[in-house]
């Protein structure tokens, strides 16, 4: 693995301390190999970028890491514990949280409810306790509401509190997605194209928010993104994938100089040029 230097803002942590480790992860769909012998590490406290041309297998890899699809072979370790094939909700409970390329907001719920849905392990999520322990359920709800209000304030979305999420703009939905990851004690957050469809003003806020979360709350981020400016602003190191495997990794400056990366994006492999999925 290439040299892992810390992003300027992040606290310095020993580079030999990976929060996530992938060992030869492979995924086949029918006869097609979407991810091939993929191995890399994500250092604790980093904002790691994951880039590559369309069809490189980035989103598939996210789906595998977050437990939405099982890999055909290979192992995934979170804090040196094997998590391969565990269900999404189990991984969530261990602090591994993700967002989606296309915002998955709950249109029929208000912005506040979208956030309040997230925290797990509450008694109110069993219908039986809603019958017999209503007071306790209400208590917990109050606590969660306070937390959700804080998150809204952090994201400057407070005025949209009671709006149905379906009415938000694309960028606001992306912020809401980020907000959902803040409703739990996440350790590793996987962001799938957080910048897609976000206007420049909101984009600035998004970048600042991610950086603050990384610094103040110690979230480790792994970000898939096609917007190279966002990657350059936030991520170090950057991992480059092509055709289902890791091509190279390093700082943005190193990546920019690497001829293999240019080859992968613009070369004759038949891939579309860096356009958005």
């Amino acid at each position: 693995m290439a040299d892992v230097t810390q992003a300027g803002d992040a606290a310095t942590v020993p580079k030999a301390d990976p929060i996530l480790r992938l060992c030869d992860v492979e995924k086949q769909f029918g006869g097609i190999r979407a991810v091939a012998a993929c191995s890399f590490e994500i250092g604790r406290g980093t904002i790691t970028g994951l880039i590559g041309p369309n069809g490189a297998g980035k989103s598939t890899l996210f789906n595998i890491i977050s437990g939405f699809i099982a890999p055909t072979s290979g192992r995934i370790l979170l804090d040196e514990d094997e998590i391969t094939g565990l269900a999404p909700h189990v991984l969530f409970a261990r602090g591994l949280v993700r967002t989606f390329q296309i915002p998955q907001e709950f249109q029929q719920l208000t912005v506040l409810d979208n956030l309040m849905l997230v925290p797990a392990g509450r008694s109110g999520e069993s219908i039986v306790s809603s019958w017999f322990r209503w007071a306790r359920v209400c208590d917990e709800e109050t606590g969660i509401r306070d937390r959700a209000e804080e998150v809204l304030e952090f994201l400057q979305l407070t005025r949209l509190r009671d709006e149905f999420a379906g009415n938000l703009s694309g960028g606001q939905k992306k912020l809401l997605e980020l907000g959902r990851t803040m409703m739990t004690d996440a350790r590793l957050v996987l962001l799938d194209e957080p910048g897609a469809g976000v206007n420049p003003t909101l984009m600035k806020r998004l970048v600042a928010d991610i950086r603050r979360l990384n610094r103040e709350r110690g979230y480790t981020f792994c970000i898939i993104e096609h917007d190279m400016d966002l990657i350059a602003a936030l991520c170090d190191p950057v991992i480059v994938m092509a055709e289902g495997a890791v091509l190279t990794a390093g700082s943005m400056a190193e990546i920019r100089r690497d001829p293999r990366v240019i080859e992968a994006y613009f070369g004759g492999s038949g891939q579309a040029r860096g356009t958005r999925a």
Binding site: P88, H89, F100, Q104, F106, Q108, L109, A120, R180
Partner: peptide, 13 residues
């Protein structure tokens, strides 16, 4: 509405 997002929110759907 969106089962997959509920899974991502840590619920055993």
């Amino acid at each position: 509405e969106r089962e997959i997002a509920v899974m991502a929110a840590g619920k055993n759907t």
